[in-house]
């Protein structure tokens, strides 16, 4: 019998975790620079505190680039949500649509995004559009699949209940299917959100114009100390995107929170 995790220790876990990451990073950087005497140590893995100093010094550049990358990722993500949502509804409405669409979706997922990004870029010839298209492309799938499985997991007697009241299809979706699938929808979004950010960074890398990816690329080849701060910015954006979705989930799916809490209590 383990008691529920108390507030204090709930804060303790992430703090230990962060301390661990920082500790390992600093240690490895120290080993590279001081023990192995690697002349490239500052490029391979600089000290975290150095990275943070450069990050702060270049905060304007980083934030500007980050904003370009992130805002396009968000637009793509929102489009991905819409497409994923519509696909999931269509597939749940008709087995035939599901059977026709599924192979296409699977094949689309097998195309490496690394190869697809330059193709899209050469087609639309616009960096912003490419970022959005690729972010959409990568984020709709996890949302569609998770939501579909959420729809399919709706218990039969819950549907029978509405059938008994002669509820029409839109009412069934509104009152039962959507609320039931909401937790799965959020699961899909949590997977898709950082992927959309990654996709946007990837498209940045296709040019050296703007965006976090562009800073990474030209620092990588042209040298300078901005590579790691740019990576750090990318990480922060990824974490922010997931955190935003989690916050939204916390607000929108209170009953899941309750039942999870109860499961925790009964352990």
């Amino acid at each position: 019998m383990k008691g529920p995790i108390r507030k204090k220790s709930r804060l303790l876990v992430p703090m230990v975790w962060i301390a661990g990451v920082v500790g390992v990073w600093e240690l490895v950087a120290f080993l590279l620079a001081e023990v192995l005497k690697d002349p490239q140590a500052a490029n391979k893995l600089p000290y975290l505190h150095d990275v943070i100093v450069v990050f702060v010094q270049n905060a304007d550049t980083m934030l500007q680039a980050g904003e370009i990358t992130l805002s396009r990722a968000v637009v793509g993500f929102l489009l991905g949500i819409s497409i994923g949502f519509i696909l999931a509804v269509l597939m749940s409405l008709s087995k035939i649509i599901e059977k026709i669409a599924m192979p296409y979706l699977l094949i689309m997922q097998m195309i490496p995004i690394l190869g697809l990004a330059p193709i899209i870029f050469s087609l639309v010839k616009d960096l912003d559009t490419s970022r959005i298209v690729i972010a959409t492309y990568i984020s709709f799938y996890p949302i569609a699949i998770n939501m579909l499985s959420g729809f399919q997991a709706v218990a039969k007697d819950r549907k029978d209940l509405l059938y008994t009241y002669a509820a029409k299809q839109p009412v069934v979706y509104l009152k039962l299917m959507f609320p039931s699938a909401l937790p799965s929808f959020f699961t899909g979004m949590k997977i898709a959100a950082p992927m959309a950010v990654t996709a946007s960074i990837l498209v940045d890398m296709l040019s050296n114009k703007d965006g976090i990816g562009a800073i990474m690329i030209y620092s990588l080849y042209g040298g300078g100390d901005k590579f790691w701060p740019a990576v750090l910015t990318g990480i922060i954006m990824g974490i922010l995107s997931t955190a935003a979705v989690s916050l939204l989930e916390w607000l929108c799916v209170p009953w899941e929170r309750h039942s999870r809490q109860r499961e925790g209590d009964s352990v």
Binding site: A155, R158, K175, P179, L182
Partner: peptide, 8 residues
């Protein structure tokens, strides 16, 4: 047989 209540 089960109450079939909607949790939300």
């Amino acid at each position: 047989q089960s109450p079939v209540l909607y949790d939300w």
